[in-house]
């Protein structure tokens, strides 16, 4: 990761180049939690705050086309009220968005404060975004992450080959089926849900695209550590006619997504460890 002074210099350069009236005057820059391939800074002026997402060139690599599609995806999601607005973006994929004040929906907060219905409403809105041409498939991600993990010599967990093989097989079956496909976020870890005064909004659209709607249902429920009853209630809120095949399909996608998360962690830990 870049040291804070270098990040601030980068932020100041972008501020100058974008020349946004919103950032006129004294801007206070502070670090925020970031991702494996980006650095997030909070830019505060007296009346408002913004998030500047800087691509970390030493982090996990991502194609520029994918980054640009992620920016477009967040813009589309904002038009439906489920994501912060993007104010400016660079050709390299750095971008400035609104800072959303609110609670990050950690599993315990979702449970204790009853946020599942608001999460479902946000997902239902998000899935109405016209899907882009770019397809998102879990098995594509798994392949990419495993190539990355192998390249940096990551140690694979015992028996992981069989899990990988099964994930690919099951993914192929679901993709070949007529399971519903919509615009999806595709990275619904709890920290990407924020409860704001305007409802639940989503951030980090790096993986968004046209994909199986079940990926978002499976990702949101499993990464928020919902048990079977909580997952069932979540799915029924989304689709009141919930049936057994949907339950099985979501469990299956939870399995494939869990393998994807393992593959990503194997790659990211080794990549960032090697770059540090």
């Amino acid at each position: 990761m870049q040291a804070l002074p270098r990040r601030c210099a980068c932020a100041e350069a972008l501020q100058t180049s974008w020349a946004l009236p919103e950032l006129a005057g004294r801007v206070v820059i502070s670090p925020l939690a970031g991702g494996a391939n980006n650095v997030n800074l909070k830019l505060a002026v007296p009346a408002r705050s913004f998030v500047l997402k800087l691509r970390d060139r030493k982090g996990v690599p991502a194609s520029n086309a994918r980054i640009q599609e992620a920016i477009q995806g967040q813009g589309l999601a904002h038009s439906l009220g489920v994501s912060p607005a993007i104010l400016a973006a660079s050709a390299d994929g750095d971008f400035l968005s609104e800072f959303v004040t609110g609670k990050t929906l950690r599993p315990e907060i979702i449970r204790s404060d009853g946020y599942a219905p608001a999460m479902v409403i946000a997902l239902q809105k998000l899935h109405r975004v016209p899907p882009p041409d770019r397809h998102f498939r879990l098995d594509d991600d798994i392949r990419t992450f495993m190539v990355g993990a192998t390249a940096v010599g990551a140690a694979l967990p015992q028996g992981f080959d069989r899990l990988l093989q099964l994930a690919h097989e099951l993914n192929g079956i679901i993709v070949a089926s007529a399971a519903p496909v919509t615009f999806i976020h595709a990275d619904l870890v709890p920290q990407n849900f924020i409860a704001s005064d305007k409802g639940v909004v989503l951030v980090d659209f790096d993986y968004c695209g046209r994909g199986l709607t079940a990926i978002d249902i499976a990702g949101a429920t499993s990464q928020a550590e919902m048990d079977d009853a909580e997952t069932d209630a979540f799915m029924r809120l989304y689709d009141p006619d919930l049936d057994d095949a949907q339950r099985v399909r979501v469990k299956c996608v939870q399995f494939i997504n869990a393998i994807r998360e393992v593959a990503w962690a194997l790659m990211a830990e080794a990549t960032i460890g090697a770059a540090a």
Partner: peptide, 29 residues
């Protein structure tokens, strides 16, 4: 990894391969 292994332990794979393709008309996911 724990989640994947726990899910797999509960799978009846031969039944599951058929069930996941059973798409009800109007199903939303």
């Amino acid at each position: 990894l724990d989640l994947a292994r726990a899910l797999l332990a509960g799978f009846d794979l031969s039944a599951l391969r058929k069930q996941i393709c059973d798409i009800r008309p109007g199903a939303r996911f």
